[in-house]
Structure formats: structure tokens, C-alpha cells
Design a protein around this nucleic acid. Sequence first.
DNA 1: ATACTATGTCGTATGTTTACGTCATACTTC
DNA 2: GAAGTATGACGTAAACATACGACATAGTAT
Lengths: 112, 112
Amino acid sequence: MTYTKATAFSPEQQEVARIAKVLSHPARIAILQHLAEAKTCISGDISSALPLSRTTVSQHLTELKNAGLIKGEIDGLTVCYCIDQEQYDRARQLLESMLAAIKSSCCTDTCC
Amino acid sequence: MTYTKATAFSPEQQEVARIAKVLSHPARIAILQHLAEAKTCISGDISSALPLSRTTVSQHLTELKNAGLIKGEIDGLTVCYCIDQEQYDRARQLLESMLAAIKSSCCTDTCC
DNA sequence: ATACTATGTCGTATGTTTACGTCATACTTC
DNA sequence: GAAGTATGACGTAAACATACGACATAGTAT
């Protein structure tokens, strides 16, 4: 019962944390940036552009896909990964509106 | 040498991932929101507002502090934690500008 | 000084993530 | 249909994160 006390928090807090978690590894940031810039989005091309094995990149791609940030469409032998713009934008907005709401309100009177 | 191939990525990618990692747990989101809303910011008050033990909260506070998002000032026996607005805003801006740069550019012609 | 209180540190059990090699699958091409 | 290629699934070792009880520290008050 350790580790996952996460369920004790509000759905919004859990959702924001879930989004942040996906972004919490440089490889996944790199993959997103690559997908945004590259003309092609074939899985193998992504692997060879990163300093990681194909297996590991595939794992990161799966995580991004599970989070809904990207989608993969099979085109014969290759798989084309793209950013799922709609879901990405929704996630981004949720994260950003949470971040925007954080403003130091304490420490103006009682303490500090 | 496993696990941390993180150094193989660009400093910006690492920095963004580092910020996202701090936000990747509901407890730390909850702590930030609490600090933003509460009139007081005493460590003990934060603990009792969360469904976690004091020890665990202290650990999360330390992580937030190491990341520079909050700062803690000792006031006698109690410790007052506040959001470090300057550093927080910088982190937020870095994260948001990265997120804003992600736009599905592929999958318009060659594939999908 | 002694008892009390608020915090952080340490140790540790358990669960999770990362990274990668190997294997299985499924499509393509000869 | 046999050989080749692009992927994902599986297994696994090592590193890391989470959660918390017990202890240490340091200020406060009696």
C-alpha cells in the first residue's frame, strides 16, 4: 500500500501530475520536439535520431501514446507517429492553467 | 550506467524534464496549491492539510526546495515555506515556451 | 535545567522507471 | 514461400521514487 497514495489527491491534481510525469524525461521531450520538426515521423527515424536503443525509444513512444499526447498509425511495415494536437493542447492547457494559479499569497503578512 | 542516459540530451531538454519531474507527483502539486492559497505557510500546517505523514511531506518540501520552486525561512521553532515567485516564474516560462513550440508539422504530406 | 514542540535526517521496505537484448509478429519483396 | 525488415512485447538488472517510523536537533517555555 506504499508508493501509491496518489489516489488520495483530487482528480485535477492527479491529472496534472500525470501530464507532468510524461514530460519528466529528456528523451520524451526530445521525441516531441523531433515530431514537431521532422518532415517524417517514422518510428525508426526517431530511434536513430536519439542516443538510445530502438527498444527504449519504443518504450517512450508507448508512454507518450498512453498519455494521449501522440498517436501512431500503421502504414504497411512502418508506423507513423504524430502529435495528437487536440489532446496535446488540452493537456497543455490544463497544466498551464494550474501553473498560472500558483501565486505566492502567503508570506506577505503573518510570516517571513 | 543504465537509467541515466539523461545527460545525452540537450541542457534545455534536461532542464524542462527536471521541472516536469518536480510537478509529477500529486502531493507536490497539492503543496504548491496550498502555499498559493493558505494564509499561513508553516510546515506543520501543510502536513496536516495533506493525507500524508509529516515525514513524507517534509521530503516533498525538500524536493520542491531543491528545484528552487519554494524557499523556506526558519522563524524560531517553525519553518515558513513560500513560493519563490521569481524562480517559479522562470521555470514556468521555460516549460511553457517549450510546450508552445510543439506543433504537429509532420503527417500533413508524406504520411498519415 | 527539564520537559515540550516543530522540523529535518536516517534507514528501509516496497513499488516504479529506465535501458536494453532477445524473441515474436507481420508486412514486403524477390 | 523464403528471406528480409520494421515494430512491439517480454524479461530483467540496475537505478530511482515513495512512504513512513524512529531518532536527532534545536528552539521554547516552565
